[in-house]
Design a protein around this nucleic acid. Sequence first.
DNA 1: GGTAGACCTGGACGC
DNA 2: GCGTCCAGGTCTACC
Length: 293
Amino acid sequence: MKWCLTARQPFSFKSVIRSHGWIDLAPFHYENNSEKIWYTASLESEKVVDIGLEEAPGGVGVEVSNPLNKTEKAEISTKVDWMLGLDRDFSTFHDLARAEPKLKRVLEMSAGRILRCPMFFEDIVKTILTTNTQWGGTKRMVANLVNLYGRVISEEDQYHAFPSPKQLAAVGSDDLRSDAKLGYRAPYISELSHLVASGELDVEKYKKSNLRTSDLRKKLREIKGVGGYAAANLLMILGRYDDIPVDSWALKMVSHEWFNGEPIGPSEVEAKFKTWGEWKGLVFWFWNWSFKE
DNA sequence: GGTAGACCTGGACGC
DNA sequence: GCGTCCAGGTCTACC
């Protein structure tokens, strides 16, 4: 089954999926040299489907091999809409970028949208798994969670969906540590899963929250394992760009851009982007850095 | 509010 | 092959 979803223009499918590293984390998967990506999703009906996504005139083409009823098709469309931010308006950001040579590629790439997971719970888990480890470690931990605990499309299929809060809550902290190799992060993921599965914490409501960014930041920081960097990253995913996710890479880039490679702290990063106001997170994200690793 | 140390793993390096 | 060191954010205890 194939259909198309329209995006607010300008829109570049390639730009969204390459906006950060999420595309390399399961259950996203793709073949090298292919313009098409896949995401293995678990639907509310507990059916597991592989969703194919590719550039299409005016938006994105969606493909699912399984037969779908009307409700399932609508659910997939809603998920894809959120994942790619199809209706988001970046005209103000693009106007700002027009006046800054270091943001030239923002206009060339129609950049601004950031790839996200269908459930914010998944984005939170993945963000916690990016902390205090290298990218290879993050990929390994996420793959372990998906392959060990996620539902499969069929017994013969190699692709699993991301496990639900209920599934992860049932695993237990010790197994997350020993089997999924999450290390000290295991109790954080376990606690979050329990809170969400029991209904005590509804993280999905943050997607459409009217809270001020400072209050939303406070809520995110209440989640164990979410510190300053992780909260800023999650705010970016929620479409709030007032914060900069300052990690070691950010310190290195800013240091080489303006401080001759001298050691700096988060306050220097903040100061350099302060003038960009509510867009500074995106400005930082898409800045054309002079220093190349 | 600021700071130090612990947390865990994989990779790099020296022997 | 083995041992040691280091990088990577967050939490907690302490000042």
